[in-house]
């Protein structure tokens, strides 16, 4: 959807495509569940960004860790003074600090991979739809082939071969998800291709790449935004799963999934907090993204509006 900010739109009769942004936002937040999710998600994002300033401890600074502090329950005080609000993990890290830093990784790595997947998928989808013929068949066979595999397995295998790491995880996740975007864009673009404006653009001898990216792409953008948002949620979940298995984020920079895994052996011993608090945070992140994505679909898809 293209937003236009000219003042003339305010005086015109209501036209969903030309309304000012804040009205769309109000419409979006009319659903109380979505409003709560938006608020929580905003807080989560701010916490992740502000982590270096608000975290009581730098969990990456090994010098500040003391193994004697490991496995302390929430609220205990450390050897150097200060209080571990949510207790400590097996390495003697302040759990709250580790969670705040891990939150950033858990959000940013999937976000970057969705962006990469989006760029690759959109390009492949547009090229396939626009060129048609044998290239289209070949590309879509590849997409079908890949969609036959669960993304977990694909990302898991890539990381099993390459070893853990944030960059590798980003690429593995992008590899696991690009095909979804390719199929979506190809389907949408193929129906756009028949329309008059594309035919007209071709008659004007506008170059193919310009027609694809400047003419067709803006018209297929709203399903892309919705699917992109939902895939971000799925990607956060998958990144956590991979890190939980020890294949995603490196030990030195744990994401939420790895923090949960670190606490797993403690759960049996009654030290529930090492897993539960990062888990609750992860759960909130994934739920917020999914609720907001669903609401986005309701708002952007005119079929749901009736």
């Amino acid at each position: 959807m293209i937003e236009q900010t000219d003042t003339a739109a305010l005086t015109l009769p209501p036209n969903p495509a030309r309304r000012p942004v804040y009205e769309d936002l109000l419409d979006f937040l009319r659903d109380p569940v979505a409003a709560v999710a938006a608020f929580v998600f905003l807080v989560i994002i701010m916490l992740a960004i502000a982590a270096p300033w608000i975290a009581p401890q730098n969990p990456y600074d090994l010098a500040s860790l003391n193994i004697l502090n490991s496995g302390l329950p929430p609220g205990s005080s450390s050897l150097t003074g200060g209080v571990y609000l949510l207790g400590t993990d097996s390495q003697g890290r302040d759990l709250l600090s580790a969670m705040l830093y891990g939150l950033g990784i858990s959000l940013a790595v999937p976000f970057a991979s969705v962006l990469i997947a989006l760029v690759v998928g959109v390009t492949v989808g547009l090229v396939a739809a626009y060129s048609g013929g044998r290239l289209d068949t070949l590309l879509m066979r590849l997409v079908d082939f890949q969609l036959g595999f669960p993304p977990v397995l694909l990302a898991l295998v890539i990381l099993a071969v390459s070893g853990p790491g944030l960059g590798k995880t980003t690429l593995a996740l992008a590899t696991a998800y690009w095909a979804v975007f390719a199929r979506l864009v190809r389907g949408a673009a193929q129906s756009e291709r028949q329309k008059e404006y594309v035919v007209a653009a071709r008659c004007l001898a506008i170059p193919a790449h310009r027609i694809m990216f400047r003419h067709i792409l803006p018209n297929v953008i709203s399903p892309l935004i919705v699917v992109g948002a939902l895939e971000w949620g799925a990607c956060v979940s998958l990144e956590a799963t991979l890190s939980f298995l020890g294949l995603g984020s490196p030990i030195t920079r744990p994401s939420l999934g790895m923090l949960i895994a670190n606490g797993l052996s403690y759960i049996m011993a009654g030290r529930y907090w090492v897993s539960i608090y990062p888990g609750i945070l992860l759960m909130s992140v994934v739920l917020c993204i999914n609720i907001l994505g669903d609401r986005l679909r309701e708002c952007l898809n005119p079929r749901f509006k009736a």
Binding site: S237, A240, F244, G257, Y272, I276, G279, M283, V286, L287
Partner: peptide
Amino acid sequence: GVSLPTFWIGIIIML
């Protein structure tokens, strides 16, 4: 159920 990661569901159920 749709949005939560399987491993987290497993941990909760086990706990």
